[in-house]
Nucleic acid binder design. Structure first.
Lengths: 186, 186
DNA sequence: GACGATGCGGAGCGAGCGTTCCGGTTGTCA
DNA sequence: TGACAACCGGAACGCTCGCTCCGCATCGTC
């Protein structure tokens, strides 16, 4: 990883940058040849650096998810846990909805559970924010980190379906607050 | 459509039944050859009756959507509009989450807006239920029929992502109620 | 029962895509 | 500078899948 030839390291960076751009626009659906062309290299070169298209995709997504985790850690010490949580929730959805790669990654991660530990930082940091908000009485207690991920996936689907009505996320946020929760009839 | 040969009509029915079953399980991703095999006919026969795989899919989905519309019409005269609306909302999501075809159809209908008029019955009947519930003060007023469809798509994504935690739909339902809606800071 | 029209089956075509392979090129180090 | 190993490009392979085509079977009718 370190003792690479100079041109190899350069090409690797070009591939990563091109993949980040292409995946962000079209998600996993973008053909690998397009990425290679965008990077100005051949398809073979891509496979020299990444064992498969999937691996390249995960590399790109993981980088981004790490940023999300970092943001969550910064907010973990905010004075108002409820506000911090909602801010983060809305921000993640807004960011992710602009990045098809994240959408695809989160949406499909139901299956292989996001590859053993990958993105666990993100999961843990978000869970921390959640439990603080719950302890402060700002968010309903019958929700855990996995539920939250599911809700984010759902909000992303909403955003993709109706990009113009941004206020729909607020419906979910209101549902997350700690109020009523009664009136469960069916 | 009526003056078909007896065997042709029989085959058409077999194809439709097979498509309904196959699409329900795997959604649009199922290969057409599988449907043909399941129906016990050749691929050519499928194309004799439906111009494309997409057309066959829409035929299947539309039939199902019509049932949804009918259910909505029955509930339109219920004495408690709020309860009727919530019941319907939950029921549609539960039914649809068991049927991959409906999920795919709703999720992709953002693009071609569900083919000019197709499924309008469903849309209209659901909008009726919504506005009644809003008039009764049971549902927040800043929501229209399209928003509702988007929320359903979102809930379906949640269900697919986390099938075990059924109570997440209740978060959305609580968010739809007519209470607080204040505290909008960002 | 025979004949024309209609319908059927499934091999085959073409396009798209992930992946591999190999002849040629380029960086690196003595 | 020369030589070797590492690396590169992109043609080609194999596979999937939607769709078409055509020789053959089947139905309805006289």
């Amino acid at each position: 990883m370190e003792k690479m030839r100079a041109d190899a390291r350069r090409n690797r960076a070009k591939v990563l940058a091109a993949a980040e751009e292409a995946f962000a626009v079209d998600g996993l659906a973008v053909p690998l040849d397009d990425i290679a062309r965008l990077a100005g290299v051949g398809a073979g070169t891509v496979y020299r650096h990444f064992p498969s298209k999937e691996a390249l995709f995960q590399a790109v997504v993981l980088e981004r998810l790490e940023q999300f985790a970092e943001e969550a850690r910064e907010l973990a010490t905010a004075e108002d846990p409820g506000e911090a949580f909602v801010d983060y929730f809305v921000r993640v959805i807004r960011q992710a909805s602009l990045n098809r790669a994240i959408c695809d990654a989160l949406a499909q991660s139901s299956g292989h559970a996001f590859k053993a530990g990958a993105g666990d930082d993100f999961r843990a940091a978000m869970a921390e924010l959640l439990s603080r908000a719950q302890a402060a009485g700002a968010v309903r207690p019958d929700i855990d980190g996995d539920d939250l991920r599911a809700l984010i996936v759902g909000c992303l689907a909403v955003e993709r379906y109706a990009p113009e009505s941004r206020h729909l996320v607020r419906v979910v946020v209101d549902g997350l607050r700690a109020h009523q929760m009664a009136g469960n009839k069916s």
